[in-house]
């Protein structure tokens, strides 16, 4: 085969084009099949959010309702303090996300560009913290925040983010910063810039893909976080939407079945994530490619 390519280049080229076309068709068929399989449960969510309660349990089940019940959305909004819960989630995200990104940037900058005693040990410790299960620190953290009077406030969900933004964020950014040539820093330093200006004017603009990746991951992490609010928030009015959703879950004999309303809230809650991912995904992938995640 390979011999024939060099012997008769024309036929070889035609064959290659043919092969490439076959590969493309095959890829599309597989991607489409998988795409439907993955998206189907989500389409089911959207379909169900527009069904009547009876249709939800119809057999055989159908994806779409006979008549779309747009009123479900208003009903869901009114059934529980959904608006308030969404607002609470927004408060947590606004409080935590910038903290994680800003402090992860500073810490990664320290690891990537400064040379001081203990630096490599500290970096190993950062990676090591990924290993310790959250259950180990959860209990004393809870007792600590309880003593500080922070239970039933957003502080336990926000303040820890301002302490480096987590090992993964530090690791990703540090790897990314290492790929930026030091000559850029040196040029700016010669021009009289201080280290903070180097970070802000050189490193940060060049690291946009990695920062976007962290922004998306951070948003999803805080927006969908379940355990944190579950442990630290007890008052219904304080709940974030991720925990509040449970009130739409089916509790037999306690509350009327309202899965169609749960699905309506789910659609509302997922929309910001979907838009964010769709808009930022190009940067997202690039950010992770360029930092070359390796352990």
């Amino acid at each position: 085969m390979q011999g024939s390519v060099s012997a008769t280049p024309r036929i070889g080229a035609a064959q290659a084009t043919h092969r490439r076309a076959t590969l493309a068709v095959f890829t599309y068929v597989v991607l489409l099949g998988l795409g439907i399989a993955f998206a189907y449960p989500f389409l089911w969510t959207v379909g169900t959010s527009l069904k009547t309660q009876q249709e939800t349990y119809a057999f055989p089940p159908s994806l779409l309702p006979a008549v779309p019940q747009w009123g479900n959305y208003a009903e869901a909004w009114a059934a529980h303090p959904v608006g308030r819960w969404i607002l609470n989630s927004v408060i947590v995200v606004l409080g935590a996300l910038p903290g994680g990104i800003i402090t992860a940037t500073l810490v990664a900058y320290s690891f990537a560009r400064f040379d001081y005693p203990g630096r490599d040990v500290f970096f190993m410790v950062v990676l090591g913290t990924m290993m310790l299960p959250f259950e180990v620190t959860l209990i004393p953290q809870y007792l600590l925040f309880h003593r500080l009077g922070w239970v039933d406030t957003y502080l336990p969900l926000v303040v820890p983010s301002w302490a480096g933004g987590g090992a993964f964020a530090i690791f990703l950014l540090r790897q990314f910063f290492m790929t930026i040539p030091r000559e850029f820093d040196d040029a700016a330093l010669l021009d009289g810039a201080n280290s903070l200006q180097v970070l802000w004017w050189i490193i940060v603009p060049l690291s946009r893909p990695a920062l976007v990746a962290l922004f998306i991951l951070g948003f999803l992490g805080h927006w969908n976080d379940f355990l944190g609010p579950l442990v630290y928030l007890n008052k219904m009015g304080m709940f974030t939407i991720a925990v509040g959703l449970r009130f739409f879950q089916h509790f037999p004999e306690v509350i009327a079945k309202m899965e169609h309303l749960l699905m309506a809230v789910t659609v509302m809650m997922s929309l910001p994530s979907i838009v964010l991912f769709f808009v930022g995904q190009r940067f997202f992938v690039k950010g992770i490619v360029l930092s070359g995640l390796k352990l």
Binding site: A39, T45, F226, I241
Partner: peptide, 10 residues
Amino acid sequence: FLPSLVPVVA
């Protein structure tokens, strides 16, 4: 990526 955007309760 859609499924990973769906909150775990849902």
